[in-house]
Simulated assay, not measured.
Amino acid sequence: MFFKKLNVGILFILLVVLTACGSTSNGEEKDSSETDEVQTIKMGQINWAENVAVTNMWKVILEDEGYDLELKLLDMGAQMAGVANGDLDVSPEVWLPIQDASYLERYQDEANFSEESWYDNAKVGLVVPEYMEDINSIEDLNAHKDEFEGEITGFEPGAGTMVVTGEMIDEYDLDFELIQSSESAMIASIGKAIDNNKPIVAPLWSPHRVFSEMDLKYLDDPKKTYGEAEKIYHATRHGFADDFPKVDKWLKNWKLNDDQIGELMSMVNEANDPADGAAKWVEKNQELVDEWLEK
């Protein structure tokens, strides 16, 4: 009888312990999202002014919300491949309907392309300095080939705009070579040309801080090779919405206008650390950020 009572007592204690382990103090099942484990999100980054600005903005926002955002410096082709194969969670900058159409066509079944754009007033095209008064259209370029030494100064290969610029050369039958480099090198070349009142032609896009720093003009594109108004979207890997439902919703709520993204780029550019500039912008625009996070 003693052993029977002992066994019953031990069983009762075990049940109490197991119940305590499986419940919170108020008796409810513990939600895994309430643990202290920090969830890591991998986001692609490209060394473009607006991309550096928005990726650092999201780093500040998500880390404030308890996530760890790991930024991966990758060109556009590598980003989209990474999202498609699941190595990357988010590619934050997809230009449609023209610039990144090739990536949409290639990966539309392997990645999630958001239907919600975060910027609606994007523009892409060839630019020249304002002082080049005789050159106002892409169709004017061949007649001035020697002035440009037959070169269009470009940036990173694989970027959608570089792909479209290659198509534009064929479309307009331009006797020009597209030179690959980096965005920073291209901007430096434009600045040097302007300082010396020299000719230069390059593919550029808006939004970009360079338009507030240099007098540039877009060349007319009568064949609409670059398209007209572009919108900027984001893409995520399959399963991201299940793994990070809140963040997935926040990204879809994200929206910036000309003034907001212009201020963000300026603050990031002026800071010694891009994250510091982004943090100041987030603090100044907390009401806007709260709208993204509350809906």
Score class of each variant (00 low, 15 high):
residue 194 I to T: 02
residue 30 K to Y: 14
residue 156 E to W: 11
residue 55 T to V: 06
residue 146 D to F: 06
residue 107 Y to P: 02
residue 90 V to C: 06
residue 257 N to T: 10
residue 10 I to A: 08
residue 45 Q to N: 08
residue 178 L to E: 08
residue 276 D to C: 00
residue 1 M to I: 12
residue 74 L to R: 09
residue 242 D to Y: 08
residue 67 Y to G: 05
residue 278 A to P: 05
residue 204 L to M: 15
residue 183 E to D: 10
residue 7 N to K: 14
residue 17 V to N: 07
residue 128 V to G: 03
residue 172 Y to H: 09
residue 228 E to R: 12
residue 95 W to Y: 15
residue 223 K to I: 05
residue 193 A to P: 03
residue 64 D to C: 03
residue 129 P to R: 05
residue 214 M to P: 01
residue 257 N to Y: 10
residue 217 K to H: 04
residue 205 W to S: 14
residue 229 A to K: 15
residue 5 K to G: 14
residue 9 G to H: 06
residue 291 E to P: 00
residue 274 P to A: 04
residue 105 E to W: 07
residue 114 S to H: 09
residue 203 P to W: 07
residue 247 V to Q: 08
residue 19 T to D: 07
residue 124 V to C: 12
residue 58 W to N: 08
residue 87 D to M: 11
residue 139 E to L: 03
residue 133 E to Q: 10
residue 135 I to D: 01
residue 175 D to P: 00
residue 206 S to K: 15
residue 137 S to R: 09
residue 106 R to Q: 15
residue 188 A to P: 01
residue 81 A to V: 09
residue 32 S to M: 13
residue 51 N to H: 09
residue 99 Q to H: 11
residue 38 V to F: 02
residue 286 Q to Y: 07
residue 110 E to R: 10
residue 161 T to Q: 13
residue 263 E to A: 14
residue 200 I to V: 15
residue 136 N to G: 11
residue 6 L to R: 09
residue 117 S to I: 01
residue 166 G to P: 10
residue 65 E to T: 06
residue 186 M to A: 12
residue 186 M to L: 11
residue 209 R to E: 11
residue 106 R to I: 06
residue 204 L to S: 03
residue 169 I to C: 09
residue 207 P to S: 07
residue 4 K to C: 11
residue 199 P to K: 03
residue 110 E to P: 01
residue 225 T to R: 11
residue 200 I to F: 04
residue 132 M to G: 00
residue 195 D to K: 10
residue 14 L to S: 11
residue 292 W to M: 07
residue 147 E to K: 04
residue 230 E to I: 13
residue 11 L to F: 15
residue 156 E to L: 13
residue 55 T to A: 06
